[in-house]
């Protein structure tokens, strides 16, 4: 039940050598796999579902959209949650501003202040926005909204037109703000058992703070911040 096969190669050496000898994981194309279940998708089927876009522009479709076009679309589809200028409404995300706040006590992580790649904006608007009607926008509309949100953050000029050539060229302000290798563990506690510290001081307590919803009875909807 809890056996682990580290890699298919290990699998090959332990139990299924015959199978894998005829079906190497890295090898010449065979018409079907070992089990042969399922169907082979058509190019059209793959294209319809393959919606991801990478920083290098791979996945961006034909089409284009301007900042001006984006402004009109934004007012219609986005401003009710994100505010007319991307300032955010209630707890819905703020999209613009926040430059230079990442080291402050209350950082504002927006497209302009935090997002490392412009492609992510196109990808995410296209796949998941507007929140109440995801995947309802045309490619041109997504380009236009992407251009507008970039312009709201002063990353592109007002005459910017987004398309599959221009978008991968956009360098985001916080592009270099990330490391993509996990440095952890970064904290090394000792397993001390006796007399580990001289004094114990309570710095904060949740007692008396009216933030905890009820944990008995029906769901608590009455608590506000």
């Amino acid at each position: 039940m809890f056996s682990f096969h580290k890699t298919p190669r290990l699998l090959a050496s332990t139990c299924c050598g015959v199978i894998l000898a005829s079906m190497p994981i890295l090898g010449a194309a065979e018409p079907t796999g070992y089990y042969g279940y399922g169907e082979t998708p058509t190019d059209e089927q793959i294209a319809a579902w393959d919606i991801d876009v990478r920083p290098d522009g791979k996945g961006l479709p034909e089409g284009s959209g301007s900042v001006d076009e984006g402004m009109t679309l934004f007012e219609t589809h986005c401003s009710s949650c994100h505010g007319a200028f991307g300032e955010g409404m209630g707890r819905y995300p703020k999209l613009a501003g926040g430059e230079g706040t990442l080291t402050e006590d209350r950082p504002e992580k927006t497209v302009g202040s935090y997002w490392p790649y412009a492609s992510t904006l196109w990808d995410y608007i296209h796949r998941a926005m507007p929140f109440f009607a995801p995947q309802s926008l045309t490619d041109d509309q997504v380009y236009a909204l992407t251009a507008y949100v970039l312009n709201l953050n002063y990353i592109v000029d007002a005459d910017f037109v987004a398309n599959k050539e221009t978008l991968p060229e956009v360098v985001m302000p916080n592009h270099d703000g990330f490391t993509w290798e996990d440095p952890r563990p970064v904290v090394n506690n000792e397993r001390c058992m006796k007399d580990c510290k001289e004094e114990v001081t309570i710095s904060d307590s949740a007692a008396g703070k009216n933030l905890t919803p009820s944990t008995t009875g029906p769901l608590d909807e009455g608590i506000t911040e």
Binding site: D52, V53, R54, Y117, D123
Partner: peptide, 8 residues
């Protein structure tokens, strides 16, 4: 792919 969930 540097998607929204793994960047922002």
């Amino acid at each position: 792919w540097m998607q929204r969930e793994e960047t922002s």
